[in-house]
Amino acid sequence: MQDPWTIDTFHITLRLVLALLLGGVIGFERERSSRAAGLRTHILVCLGSTLVMLLSMYGFADFARLDNVRLDPARLAAQVISGIGFLGAGTILYTGKSITGLTTAASLWVVAAMGLAIGAGFYYAAGLACFFALISLFVLNLVEKRYMHHRKVRSLKLEAADIPSLLGRVTQLLGSKGCDIQKLSVEEAPVDADEAARILITLSVRLSKGAKVSEMIEELLRLEGVRSVSLD
């Protein structure tokens, strides 16, 4: 009967290579999306958690043979789950109007769990988790962009001359395009002493289904006094 506290070099290599491949697959998807944590980060997280799991299960084999020593392979693994939160938090950015990086932070947490599963020898579970994670990150992302992205609140900014009735014409144009204005603010733009007064108009809008953003921006630019338009 094989000693449960020992492992050969073949299986160590197999588990680390599998961690590199599965972590790299998810990292590649994040890299393609230009996220803060990309290919190398996901590979390193998966490799590191796999190594910690191998160490937790097999790194103390000499102590396992002592009568007064009891080993708990889950202790080091629990520290990985706790510690990955610090790395994930580093990928979350708050820009003042929105929070980005939550999906990447979640993918790092999943990759860490995959590494622990690979280190423990649960190859099927790690592979299936990788498959489902890719569905969530890639396939569902395409679905979200196609069917739900237009309903998200977007930030529309206009720089324009300070002329009467401009704000009314802007809101009327957006209303005709089916846009739902959630929030609106107007402030004076900094100008030189010899320049005419300008204002900055910021609107939080929910675009209508099938809205043609390029055409809407062109029509806004054609309004008298509007100098620039940007949509985040």
Rank of each mutant, 00 (worst) to 15 (best):
S214T: 08
R169F: 00
K157H: 10
S176G: 06
A77K: 01
D192Y: 09
L14C: 03
V170R: 07
G83I: 04
A117L: 08
L71D: 06
R32L: 00
V139R: 01
M1R: 02
L158C: 10
L108F: 01
F122Q: 11
L137E: 09
E215A: 14
A117S: 09
T9V: 12
Q2G: 08
V111R: 02
V80R: 01
F10K: 05
D3Q: 05
F63H: 12
A133W: 08
N68F: 15
G178A: 02
V229K: 08
L231E: 05
T6K: 11
L47Y: 00
L76S: 03
L134G: 01
K157V: 10
A117H: 04
A197G: 10
V25W: 05
V25D: 00
R40F: 03
D232Q: 13
E187F: 15
L18S: 09
V45I: 11
V170K: 08
K183M: 09
R40D: 02
I84V: 12
L184R: 12
Q172F: 09
T95N: 05
E215P: 06
L71F: 08
G225T: 14
F138R: 01
V213G: 14
A77S: 11
W109Y: 14
L51N: 01
R75C: 14
C46S: 00
L184C: 13
I7S: 08
S155K: 11
L108W: 06
A211P: 12
D180N: 13
K152N: 13
V111F: 01
V111D: 02
A61T: 06
A161N: 07
E188Q: 15
S208G: 14
I12F: 11
T9K: 06
R40E: 05
L156C: 09
L93Y: 00
L166F: 13
G85Q: 07
G85T: 03
S230I: 10
G90C: 06
L207E: 11
K145V: 10
K212S: 03
E195Y: 00
L128R: 00
V186C: 10
A19G: 13
A133H: 15
M57P: 04
L221Y: 09
P73M: 09
E29W: 00
T171P: 05
S228K: 14
V110M: 12
M53F: 02
L21M: 00
E219G: 03
L44R: 05
S228A: 14
A160D: 11
K152G: 12
L14I: 06
F132I: 09
H149I: 05
V153H: 04
T202W: 11
V52Q: 10
T50K: 05
A117W: 02
S214I: 07
S155F: 12
R222D: 10
Y147W: 15
F131H: 04
P73A: 08
G83K: 07
I81Q: 06
E215V: 14
S185F: 10
Q172C: 08
A133Y: 07
S56D: 10
H149N: 10
L76V: 07
F60N: 11
K209W: 15
V69D: 13
R30S: 03
L14W: 14
G23W: 00
L108A: 04
F28V: 02
V170S: 09
L223H: 12
A113R: 09
A120K: 15
C130L: 03
F60Q: 11
I92F: 12
A106G: 06
F122C: 15
L54I: 07
E31I: 03
F132Y: 07
I135Q: 02
I43K: 00
I135E: 04
F138G: 01
